[in-house]
Design a protein around this nucleic acid. Structure first.
Lengths: 93, 93
DNA sequence: TTCTATTGTTCGGTAATTGTGAACTAAAGA
DNA sequence: TCTTTAGTTCACAATTACCGAACAATAGAA
């Protein structure tokens, strides 16, 4: 819950869900159009990773991350959908 | 989301949902069996109130709070249920 | 009314958390 | 090897949360 309570992290998760093939830090920040230092981005990804929300995989020089949909849906059915739906409602899009 | 990301606040909301007639700060802390100074409890209630999750009403010397079920369910259908369900799963009960 | 007990809020200082730049590591290609 | 790109780690600054003390509000007793 804490991992998803931060507005930046929720928007990262929302972007990751839209991108089938996953995203890396640089792509994420450019899509979010928010100027965020890479150290900050790295921290957010670390929190999402350690809380089990995303899974990251190295592809050459970059790190591609995806939302762990299946694991989340089986453990907490409907949770992520409800949170993202609520977030979209508040933040347009 | 931020209001519900704190473990103490989630457990307060869980207790409030169980109590039909609402609870005040003192009752809440005793039910949660956590030693929490009243100033801290007051802060948590304030955050829950300002985020629109609970509604508080003065009854004599005490302040009785209830979860705003209808408003939350109509604005964010399924959200609170999903969060509380996930929380119970992690914290037993 | 005045005193007392109870409930909750506000305020200020401290503790804990978060954000960020600088230095560093890892991989790939010239 | 040197360079470039992507991300991590570390240390410190900035922000936020916690908590005790003083305060406000209500109700009942004296």
């Amino acid at each position: 819950m804490h991992a998803l309570s931060d507005p930046v992290r929720i928007s990262i998760v929302a972007e990751l869900r839209k991108a089938e093939e996953g995203l890396n830090c640089v792509e994420t920040t450019s899509r979010l159009k928010c100027t965020m230092p890479k150290s900050t981005c790295s921290q957010h990804y670390r929190i999402l990773r350690e809380s089990g929300i995303i899974h990251s995989e190295r592809r050459g020089v970059e790190l591609t991350s995806k939302v762990r949909r299946k694991e989340l849906d089986s453990r907490f059915p409907g949770l992520l959908d409800a949170i993202l739906k609520a977030w979209r409602r508040e933040h347009g899009e």
